[in-house]
Design a protein around this nucleic acid. Structure first.
Lengths: 228, 228
DNA sequence: CAACCGAAAATCGGATACGATATTGGAAAT
DNA sequence: ATTTCCAATATCGTATCCGATTTTCGGTTG
C-alpha cells in the first residue's frame, strides 16, 4: 500500500479544470490585478495557477474570443486595453437599439416569475452599495448585469439577451470605474424600469430604460473624461 | 548537411494550423458532410486532417463558442443540430431590430468607398446563381453575408456589424436550403436596398431592408416547413 | 551618445505519449 | 425484454520535447 507515485495535491481534479482556470483568469482581469497592456505568458500563468499549459491555453483562447485579452501571433497574449471613448459610445448606441425595445416587450410578455425576478434583482442592489470598497462596487456591477439580463430574457427572445451579455458592458464600466473611483449608484432609475414593467406599461418601460441608459452613458463618460 | 531528421511534408506549417483546422472543420460542417447530431471524435478528426490533437481541440473549442458544435462534458462533441423554427424566428426578429436601422444610417453615413463596395457586392451576386449546384448556392450565401456586413459596417458602428456576423444567419439558411434544395434568389431586393443607400435616402433604405428581411424570412420558413 | 545590428534567451505553436476517469456498447443474467 | 456488469473506447489533463519566431540585451558603428 505504499505510494510509489509522487503524491498528487489535486488527484486529477475532474471538475472541469478549463472552466476554473477561465474563471480565475477572468477574475484577475476584472479586478485589474493585471495591468491592461501587460503581457500574459502561457506557462507563467500555468505555474501561477499550478496547472499544466493545456487548460491555460484553452482559457486564453476563450478570453480572446471575448475580448478580454488580445493575441499577437507567435508572441503571446496581452491584457486587453481599457475600452476607448469611441467604443464606449458604440456600445451604448447598440444597447439603446436593443434594451428599450426589450423593456417594452418585457412589460407585455413577462411571466409572473419574470416580474418577480426583476423585482428581486432591483431589491438586491440596494444593500450592495453599502461598502466603499472595490469589492462592493464589483458586486453592484454583477447585480446590475443580472438585472439587465433578466429584463432582456423576459422580453422573450433569448438571442437578444445573449447579444447583450456578449457586450460585457458591466465589465467595461467596472474596469473604468475601478480606475476612476467608486461611482454613485442610482437605484431609482432601476426602480422606475421595474415599476413600468410590473404595471404592464410598454411605452413607459421603454422610456424608462432609454432614460436610464442615457444617464448611465453620461455618468460613465464623465468618469472617463476625468480619468484621462 | 544531411537530414538526419525524418522529412517533414509540411515543415512546421507556420500558417496557424489551428486556423486551417478550424476552416476545414467549418467547411465540413457547412457542407453537411457531417450529419447534424453525429459524433465528432477529437483524434478521429486529428487523424483525418493529419494533424495532432492540439489544434483540433482548439478548433472545436472555437466552433463550440460559435454554436457549430455542441459539447457533452467528458463525452466529446456533436455536430450541432439544425436551427429550430423558433430560433429562426428569433434570429429574424433580432435582425429586424438592427439591420433596417443600419441601412438607414448607411444611407447617410456611408463613404464613397462604402457605396462602391455595396454596389460591387450586389453586382457580384448576379452571376453566382448560375450553377445549379450546392457549390453555387454556397457562393451566393457567402456573397449575401458579405453584402449585409458591408452595409452594417457602412452604418458607422462596428459593434453592430460584429453582432450581425456572430448570428451567422447565412450559415443557418445555407444548412436549411441544403436540405431543402436550391432556393430561388432575388437580386431585385438587394438592388433596391443599394439604390436607396446610393440615393442618400435613409427612410427608403430602412424600408427596403425591412421588406427584404421579411421576404427572406417568409422564403426560409416555407423551405423549413416543406422539409419537415 | 544615439542608432543599429546580431546572438542568446524566452516563448509560442504544435507533436507525442501517458494516466485517470467517464461514457458506451454489448454480453450475460434475471 | 429489461437490467447488470464489464471491457473497450474516448475525453481531459499532465508531462515533455521540438522547431520557429520574437524579444531582449550587449556590443559595434556612425
Amino acid at each position: 500500500m505504499d505510494q510509489t507515485q509522487a503524491p498528487r495535491l489535486q488527484p486529477a481534479a475532474r471538475l472541469m479544470l478549463r472552466e476554473s482556470v477561465y474563471e480565475s483568469l477572468k477574475r484577475l482581469l476584472m479586478d485589474n490585478a493585471l495591468e491592461p497592456g501587460s503581457r500574459l505568458s502561457i506557462d507563467g500563468l500555468a505555474r501561477e495557477l499550478e496547472v499544466s499549459q493545456t487548460p491555460v491555453r484553452e482559457a486564453l483562447f476563450r478570453c480572446e474570443a471575448e475580448g478580454l485579452v488580445v493575441r499577437r501571433p507567435n508572441a503571446g497574449y496581452l491584457v486587453a486595453p481599457l475600452i476607448t471613448r469611441d467604443a464606449l459610445l458604440d456600445l451604448y448606441d447598440l444597447r439603446l437599439l436593443l434594451e428599450p425595445t426589450a423593456a417594452a416587450r418585457a412589460a407585455t410578455n413577462a411571466t409572473d416569475r419574470d416580474r418577480r425576478d426583476i423585482k428581486d434583482a432591483v431589491r438586491a442592489m440596494g444593500p450592495a452599495v453599502h461598502g466603499d470598497s472595490y469589492q462592493a462596487y464589483r458586486e453592484f456591477a454583477e447585480e446590475d448585469a443580472k438585472l439587465h439580463t433578466t429584463i432582456a430574457t423576459a422580453a422573450g427572445n433569448p438571442l437578444i439577451a445573449e447579444t447583450l451579455d456578449r457586450l460585457r458592458a458591466h465589465v467595461h464600466s467596472y474596469r473604468l470605474y475601478f480606475r476612476h473611483g467608486i461611482a454613485e449608484v442610482t437605484t431609482t432609475e432601476h426602480q422606475a424600469i421595474s415599476d413600468r414593467i410590473q404595471a404592464h406599461d410598454p411605452p413607459g418601460a421603454e422610456q424608462a430604460m432609454r432614460a436610464h441608459l442615457e444617464n448611465s452613458r453620461t455618468r460613465l463618460l464623465a468618469a472617463y473624461d476625468e480619468t484621462f
